[in-house]
């Protein structure tokens, strides 16, 4: 909220610098491989969409994109749904072990994927979920559920307790109150939480590739295939990379107002 031209200039400068690597990727996706390797150019000489067409026409790519979108979407829904009652409980009640439970949840948020990759591999193999989207859905719950609880708890705290009490006096049953009155009040928070869950699941690669092999290969794993024997297909990689940015961009566009409305994750 500084006034004057300087903040605006700095901000725009930052946006430009931020976009440079992304622009580079887009540029490369529109060039052929020979074009890329032939030297440094700021603009593609003969822009072509052939790599995009290649991806769209290849069932492996398309299937992989669907797989990625599926497990991310399912994971987001499950994480938010499971976290909502828990966030409510943590904020509104004291119960035995509540602080310890919350702390333990946080530690899972911080769990290094590298530590869990191998055990997960064995676990999901043992229960037959290996190479299915459900393995990834559940594995990503490890960090997304605590994150969702954490964020939502802050938003639940922003709703005055009087509203709960009034609803009780007015004769609402708890489920009815929760769904018809409470949820709309934290719609903002749900939007923000869904965004972060989507984001962290979409970008996580180590677990997603470790737990899948052929049927449920996520998009990024197919990308590593582009590192083929005949040398790097940079152009294809770039096109695939550009495509991976699009779902995320959509999601944040949809929740932009929720973020702009502001949240402090606690009392202001």
């Amino acid at each position: 909220m500084r006034n004057g031209a300087l903040p605006k200039i700095l901000f725009v400068f930052y946006l430009v610098v931020l976009m440079l690597p992304i622009y580079w990727l887009i540029k490369m996706s529109l060039q052929s491989n020979t074009d890329i390797m032939s030297g440094l150019t700021l603009f593609p000489r003969n822009p072509t969409f052939e790599k995009y067409l290649e991806i769209f026409n290849d069932p492996t790519w398309v299937h992989a994109f669907g797989v990625s979108l599926s497990y991310v979407a399912i994971n987001t829904v499950i994480s938010v749904a499971v976290a909502l009652p828990a966030a409510y409980a943590f904020n509104r009640y004291y119960f035995i072990g509540d602080k310890h439970l919350f702390f333990w949840l946080l530690t899972n948020l911080m769990a290094p994927a590298a530590v869990f990759a191998m055990p997960f591999f064995q676990l999901y193999y043992a229960i037959g979920l290996f190479d299915s989207i459900w393995a990834v859905v559940l594995a990503h719950c490890l960090f997304n559920v605590p994150l969702a609880v954490w964020i939502l708890e802050g938003f639940v705290g922003g709703v005055p307790r009087e509203i709960d009490e009034t609803a009780a006096i007015d004769g609402y049953t708890f489920p009815s109150f929760f769904i018809r009155i409470f949820l709309p009040l934290i719609a903002n928070g749900i939007g923000v939480t869904a965004f972060f869950c989507f984001m962290f699941s979409w970008v996580e690669q180590l677990l997603a590739t470790t737990l899948t092999s052929t049927h449920a290969l996520p998009f990024a794993a197919v990308m590593t295939r582009a590192y083929s024997v005949s040398g790097m297909d940079w152009s294809l990689l770039a096109a695939a990379g550009v495509l991976t940015m699009i779902p995320g961009a959509f999601v944040i566009w949809f929740v932009r107002n929720h973020i702009a409305k502001g949240f402090a994750l606690g009392r202001v």
Binding site: L15, V203, G241, I252, N257
Partner: peptide, 22 residues
Amino acid sequence: VGISLVIIALPMLIPWNVVGTI
């Protein structure tokens, strides 16, 4: 506001191996 938020968030929305590749 909307445009800024999308652009700002873009780097975070890229799968990490693609970030590496870029």
